[in-house]
């Protein structure tokens, strides 16, 4: 993620915890793919934050300087705007879960295609 040079002599720290990772879906490939998707979300979020820094700095100075971007920290207003954008993007990506809730519980929960097919194919004379 960060391409900055590492300071001093470094020993690699482990990234994986000890203990068996649970399987969440019937197909383990789904587990792996979901992991990758969320990590991709993070990468995209990081890139977008960085771009945001660049844009704000450009607007402010009209000059692009790499070290300035590195040192830039959002003020309260910018941080709040970022939080809002991140939350919105996260909500978009996980909207599929809202869909499941709505389909199961919502007031306009759609019926199955079989139900609809039966409804539309029914003889109108038999309905009131």
């Amino acid at each position: 993620m960060s391409d900055m040079p590492k300071s001093g002599n470094t020993a690699a720290l482990p990234r994986v915890s000890k203990g068996k990772r649970p399987q969440y879906f019937a197909d383990p490939a789904t587990d792996k793919l979901l992991s990758m998707v969320v990590t991709l979300m993070s990468e995209l979020s990081v890139t977008r934050d960085r771009l945001d820094s660049v844009e704000r700095l450009l607007a402010h100075h009209g000059v692009l300087d790499q070290s300035e971007v590195e040192g830039y920290r959002p003020d309260a207003e910018a941080a709040a705007a970022r939080e809002q954008r991140r939350a919105a993007a996260t909500a978009r990506i996980f909207r599929i879960l809202d869909n499941e809730l709505n389909e199961t519980l919502g007031p306009d929960a759609p019926r199955t295609y079989e139900e609809l097919a039966r409804e539309f194919a029914a003889d109108p004379s038999e309905r009131r």
Binding site: M1, S42, S45, V46, D49, R50, V69, G71, E83, R86
Partner: peptide, 8 residues
């Protein structure tokens, strides 16, 4: 910068 963004 990018580490902070990842944590955020």
């Amino acid at each position: 910068h990018d580490e902070m963004a990842a944590q955020d």
